[in-house]
Nucleic acid binder design. Structure first.
Lengths: 147, 147
DNA sequence: TTCAGTGCAAAGAATTTGCAGCAAT
DNA sequence: ATTGCTGCAAATTCTTTGCACTGAA
């Protein structure tokens, strides 16, 4: 059961905002997305089932999800802002294949620990972080480079 | 002496491109920048000393620097593409203060080592990475939060 | 002389916003 | 009934491109 839904509705109540059919639809689709959808991707997906929905609404909802803490904005390299659910796991980092575009996730507590250490050495207080490893996934690196 | 300049000129020759006054100016200013300038910031700086210079030229030069391998494009969170010199050090990561916007750099071989380990476990070959820690710098965290 | 580079302005792309009607509280 | 939300279209913002002229090789 989608962890973020309850959290989001609580946020809406707390902020005096309204729960709407669109927000529910968008959140459902967002949480259903395994990947890291951009506004446009999510909009296109939603449009198939619910043609009336507007791009701006999707955009505003994603920003709202981010404010509510159930989503996070990310930039991978194409010019688009992508959003990722924070509900699934506490945090995870990414392996981005530069050949096929696949994005997989990982988590390493030892790395997190060292990050804390580094921060401490700099008198810095971490609130969040972002770690992306770019390169070739196993499928692409075992294959002679195409193109 | 700026490490990237020689490298860049070699790249130009290799590619049959031309060395121009503007490219030199832009590269000089770029290397002089301690921070991570966006196209616009660099353009504005250059404009003060060399009013004739065009935004498009700065933009195209930065892309060229990236192709030449002496610069790297980055996205921190504001909507702008920022460029960073790769000449100074092999690689470094960032501490980004979300209060004052300060960006400082660090490098930790132990973290890099663990990254390699993670990649290996996933059959992934790293070509580059990006690690950013967001939070409060020492100055901002020792100060009561100024809303 | 040749062909890439420059500067301008205009085009694109992605994101954000104004507003009139709609819907949740 | 209120007051926020939606969808449309228009406005911004940032990035990229077309073109005639300039300048490096």
């Amino acid at each position: 059961m989608a962890a973020g839904k309850k959290e989001f509705h609580e946020y809406l109540v707390r902020q005096g905002l309204k729960s709407t059919r669109q927000r529910d639809l968008i959140l459902d689709e967002f949480l259903r997305c395994a990947s890291h959808p951009s506004t446009e991707e999510l909009y296109l997906r939603l449009r198939k089932k619910h043609p009336g929905i507007g791009y701006a609404t999707v955009h505003r909802s994603l920003k709202l999800f981010a404010e509510a803490g159930i989503a996070e904005a990310r930039h991978f390299g194409d010019g688009q802002t992508r959003y990722e659910s924070t509900a699934s796991a506490e945090h995870h980092d990414h392996l981005v294949c530069t050949a096929c575009g696949a994005i997989s996730e990982f988590e390493d507590p030892r790395i997190e620990q060292l990050q804390e250490k580094v921060a401490k050495d700099h008198g810095f207080t971490i609130t969040s972080h972002r770690l992306e490893l770019y390169g070739l996934c196993s499928a692409c690196s075992s294959r002679p480079q195409t193109g």
